[in-house]
Amino acid sequence: MPLLSVRNLTVTFATSTGPFKAVDGIDLSVEAGQVLAIVGESGSGKSVGMLAVMGLLPPTATVTADEMRFEDIDMLTLTGKRRREIIGRDITMIFQEPNASLNPCFTVGYQLEETLRQHLKLGRRERRARAVELLRSVGIPEPAERLKSYPHQMSGGQCQRVMIAMAIACQPKLLIADEPTTALDVTIQKQILDLLMKLQTEHRMGLIMITHDMGVVAETADRVIVQYKGRKVEEANVLSLFTAPREPYTRALLAALPENATGDRLPTVSDLVAAQTAGAAR
C-alpha cells in the first residue's frame, strides 16, 4: 500500500477575476522509503498541491479529489483535531526560506521542543535531551549551546538544519520538502541535500522533493513528476526522465539547462512550443 496516494486532485482559488485552477487533476503516490521529485516552473502548482495535502491552504481555496489517502486515513474527511495530530508528526514539511519559517521571537530550542511537546508524551528533561540529540543528528556543532540561540544568530544553512530537525523530530513517515535549498549557496545546498538523503535512508521515510532545479532532481529522486500549468506532463523514474524524456515540455526543460548548451544560444521553452505549433499547423 502506498504511503500517500492522491487521485484527481484539483485546487481552485476564488479570485476577483473569477475562479483560477492552480492544480488540475493531479495523481500521485509515494511509497515508504521512496523519493518523489515534483518539478516545474513557478505557477505550475507544485507547491499548492502539496499544501492541499497538508491542509495549509487559505479558505479561498477549494480542494477536491477523488482520493486523498495517507496510509489508511482518508485526508479529505478528516476533522481539524485529527489532522493536527497527523500533520507535524507523521507528515511534516520544510519550506524554502529557513529564516522566514522560524519564529524570530523564540529560541530554536523552544521551537524544537514545542513540536515534541505537541506530539509526544515526554517529560521536560527527556524533551531537552531529545532536542540536543536531534540538533546533533542534523550536524549542528555544540547542540546544547545552540538550543539557546535565536534564528537571527544562525546562518541560513543552519536555520534549514533546525527546520529539518523539527521535521524529523517525531520520526515522520512522510517528509515534504518545498524547495529546501533554493535560498542556499551551492556548497551548503550539497550539505543539506546529503543530510536529507541520509535521514531519508536511515528512517526509510517517504520524501517528496518539490523543486525547479533539474540538478537537485538528478541528485535525489527515485521517481519524478513534471508539472506544467497545474497539470502533470510526465511521470517517470529519474534515469529514464533524463535519458529518454517522452514529452516535448520535459525535453525543452532539459535543453534549457545551461550545461547542455551546444552552441552559443540556449534553446528556450517558448522556442520549442513555437516550433511545435508550427509543426501542428503544417
Binding site: 532545479d213 538528478a218 541528485e219
Partner: peptide, 14 residues
C-alpha cells in the same frame, strides 16, 4: 558541490 544532471552520475547514484 554543483548538482550534476547527466545520466552517468544519476546511474552511479542509483
Amino acid at each position: 558541490a554543483t548538482p550534476r544532471a547527466d545520466p552517468v552520475s544519476i546511474r552511479r547514484r542509483i
